[in-house]
Design a protein around this nucleic acid. Structure first.
Lengths: 367, 367
DNA sequence: TTTAGCACTTGAACTCATAGAGTGCTAAAA
DNA sequence: TTTTAGCACTCTATGAGTTCAAGTGCTAAA
């Protein structure tokens, strides 16, 4: 699938490429005369017509209607994009610029991603997207109950990776600070690293024995742990600058927007897409491009998604990218997305060595 | 401002009301003949024409073009809506239905609001909206450092209201469990209830004295507290079901959608709007309706926003509502929003008495 | 293999005419 | 004084007809 275009003559390739670029630039079908006049070709429009006719039968070009120029098909774009990816070297300038733009907001990953999404949108004038996959149902490694008032305490549930979730517990009987300690001990003894589905009634009974002082407290604590563990984290998607797309003629009709807005509403699709692309294929850590409905991207309609995963210590912790019309300025976008992802990668791993304040909380953040 | 329409004759009121309702139903300008034929009036179309001409000069109706029927102006809708609000009694059936729909998701407020927003969207077929105002810069009342590994600990910062925020701290020197205790003590001694802007260098030096073991740890801990306290909480807006609006003809052109999408992007506007309406005017806790650009709602364009605040113990903790075209089915929507808000109110205060597991965390939730 | 030329197709833009809806106004009726 | 009937007027939406230009495919010659 990667190098379909191998069999094309050099001239066909040049024609195809020029058609794609011109269409990206102007948004209008390009005809043989235009190509002939653009100076790149030493032949007449008739020759180009012949070539284009062949490119059409090969599936790289198509005509909106019989008497207009050609526009690239999905396959056409794919060829062009693969070509670009082949010769692509990240522009060093971008990385610095983007890193410095991000550095100001060196908060937790969550905020970095939001920031990145906004940045992507501004730099490319398309819609920026940033996402963070869900955490799945994770067990908690450690618990700590903090005594707040005689009738309330704060339960801190800490995951293996150091991220934490907190929950207030209230009782209708007075508690002593010792009770919090006992509860902590019992939780750590019985529920440490126990996944949600293994939290059973016998376990709860065992815990009640360990904390005779406040059985009701134990019950609600266990329930909270159970809920927190089974909820998992749902992942998150940020779409920034959707309104920018409205400027492009391909989004002039309501139909085409509907899909995108739906995307904003049911963000799971995007998460699925990325998750899929990570699982299924080899993930070489490079910029990925999904064009049109290539991968059952129903909602993406006639748009294209350019993204790259963000990693920390080899593990995928998110992705950033751009959504735009199929005739996107791929050169810029690819370079930008790559730089952006690299910038984030460096940023979140640069921090690691010395004395890193990481944010670990419900919304998750780092691994 | 409330009862502009007082001066209208009964017949004018009926005409106005019928025009609004018909326009809401069909989305088309309504003419004199249609009104005459609808059976509500015992006069000819000519008479109605005269009345409508007057209603137009009074500012309640307008004509899209000279030779078409009338449509309500902003003022016209306002009159109609005020009328509705006057005679409105929450439909009891709704409340039960909605409460039971929400009860299943009796998690924290955050999730309830999301759920409510989705519910609002489904029930009305407009865009559901739920929002939670920011928390402002709050100081933390209590701190707890939890020892995780020799080189990392978890800092739990607890606000006055019991909600908490957590942050991972890492060091490059090994720590003892005692160090966490010392740090907790120092934080509680020096930073308890200290707002961000009062966290100064002398304070930090005092703390370093208290924890001679790991001055670097103190520094990063104080920094984290400072950042967390000054960040505050930014509030949150959920828009659900935006794609539903695309079905309505008033959103057929790209222009009108742009505003709404922009709303989704820069959610602050909505927060401002509600915050304003709460501060400025008397907030009687009833359903509020903002039509068109009544209150400098630039982004809302030609839409209308129906919402009601959600309270807990008298304090406003959020709002739910619906965004739709100006010609919204106000009867249904008002009733629905009211019921929904009531349902949430009951739900989050019902829970309070016995043994309430509340969620307190970064994303905030309850008071 | 390329080129020039030509007939053909087709969508876009424009004009024109028509139909229909609804109004405002005037004069008569209640 | 209020209501009604009638009529002329305005404006939009619609559709048909026409022209224009772009671009193609094909054929025959270079």
């Amino acid at each position: 699938m990667k190098q379909k275009g191998e069999g094309l003559s050099a001239r066909k390739q040049l024609i195809l490429r020029t058609v794609v670029e011109s269409y990206i630039e102007n948004g209008e079908p390009v005809g043989s005369k235009f190509l002939c006049d653009c100076g790149k070709f030493a032949c007449s429009s008739a020759t180009i017509r012949n070539e284009m006719a062949e490119l059409e039968t090969l599936g790289y070009l198509e005509q909106p209607h019989t008497s207009s120029g050609r526009i690239p098909t999905e396959t056409g774009y794919r060829f062009y994009v693969d070509l670009l990816l082949q010769n692509y070297n990240s522009a060093a300038g971008d990385v610095e610029r983007i890193k410095s733009a991000l550095r100001e907001k060196r908060a937790e990953l969550d905020s970095i991603l939001t920031q990145a999404s906004r940045l992507a949108s501004t730099l490319t004038n398309y819609t920026g997207v940033a996402l963070r996959p869900g955490k799945g149902n994770a067990a908690f490694a450690q618990f700590e109950a903090i005594y707040l008032t005689p009738r309330s305490l704060l339960l801190v549930m800490i995951r293996e990776d150091g991220t934490a979730k907190t929950k207030n517990l209230r009782t209708d009987t007075d508690l002593l600070p010792e009770d919090a300690k006992t509860l902590s001990a019992a939780l750590n003894a019985c529920l440490s690293n126990v996944p949600a589905h293994q939290i059973t009634l016998p376990l709860m009974m065992k815990m009640e024995e360990m904390c005779p002082a406040a059985p009701a407290l134990v019950r609600v604590a266990v329930k909270s742990v159970y809920e927190a563990a089974s909820e998992g984290e749902s992942g998150d998607v940020r779409l920034e600058g959707m309104d920018r797309l409205l400027g492009y003629p391909e989004y002039a009709d309501t139909e085409s927007i509907a899909g995108l807005i739906g995307l904003g509403d049911s963000k799971n699709e995007l998460l699925d897409i990325v998750a899929q692309s990570e699982e299924g294929e080899e993930d070489d850590g490079e910029v990925k491009i999904l064009i049109g409905s290539e991968n059952r991207l129903g909602a993406l309609g006639s748009s294209a998604l350019v993204y790259k995963t963000v990693r920390r210590g080899g593990k995928i912790v998110g992705a950033v990218g751009v959504i735009g019309p199929r005739r996107m300025k791929y050169q810029n976008v690819i370079s930008m997305v790559d730089s952006l992802a690299n910038g984030i990668n460096e940023l979140i791993s640069d921090d690691a060595p010395p004395l890193l304040p990481e944010k670990g909380e419900d919304k998750t953040s780092d691994d």
